[in-house]
Amino acid sequence: MIRISGLTKRFGALHVLRGLDLELGEGKVTAIVGPNGAGKTTLMKTVLGLTRSDGGEILIDGERVADDPRYRSNVGYMPQIARFPENLTAAELIAMMRDLRGNDAPVDGDLIERFKLSEHLRKPLRTLSGGTRQKVNAVLACLFRPSLLVLDEPTAGLDPVSSGILKDKIAEVRDSGRTVIVTSHVMSELDALADDIAFLVEGRVRYAGSVHDLKLATRQLSLERAIARVMVEDAVA
């Protein structure tokens, strides 16, 4: 369970988060959507500890996200851009992450098999294609069975087959009772993937709740149209 309350963040004159409140339930995939500059990335980075908030707090399983980095041993992160040290191999990268986490427990290498990555594990990362690096990125995020999985545009750069594999994996993570946060610009993708949605506008939550309820309230069949409906209503009001 993640509870975010009164989160504020400024970048100079830019007020990105303006007292954002949000709750993310366990066993759910929550999509963070919103127009450009709404604060999606800043919200995710603040949860990860990459960006420091000016005010408010984030509680993960009742523990406050602060300077102590230990809470991140339960977090998996898949950044949008997969750029790794060029001369390391994927196998070394995996070893490095295990080392850093001091984690001797068996890792979840399930995606390595499903993506058929084994043959690429010993090659320097600079020789791998963008799509293959993105697969490595997904593997790293799921490796330690995190209780919170944060995915930034996870399927960007993946072919349809791999994209399907990753979505299946995300659904399995959800079904095992863990929390998933995902952003994407492809609404149809989120429609199929997300249980809940947090729609951000200008640094605040405009709508938070289940995708199903949003569609009912706006009387739309697709998430894309439901969101569009909310935006049009806002513009009229």
Partner: peptide
């Protein structure tokens, strides 16, 4: 050039 990787490392449990 290591900036994105730095972000990934910062998302790990390191100070």
């Amino acid at each position: 050039n290591a900036r994105e990787f730095t972000e990934l490392l910062l998302a790990q449990p390191v100070h």
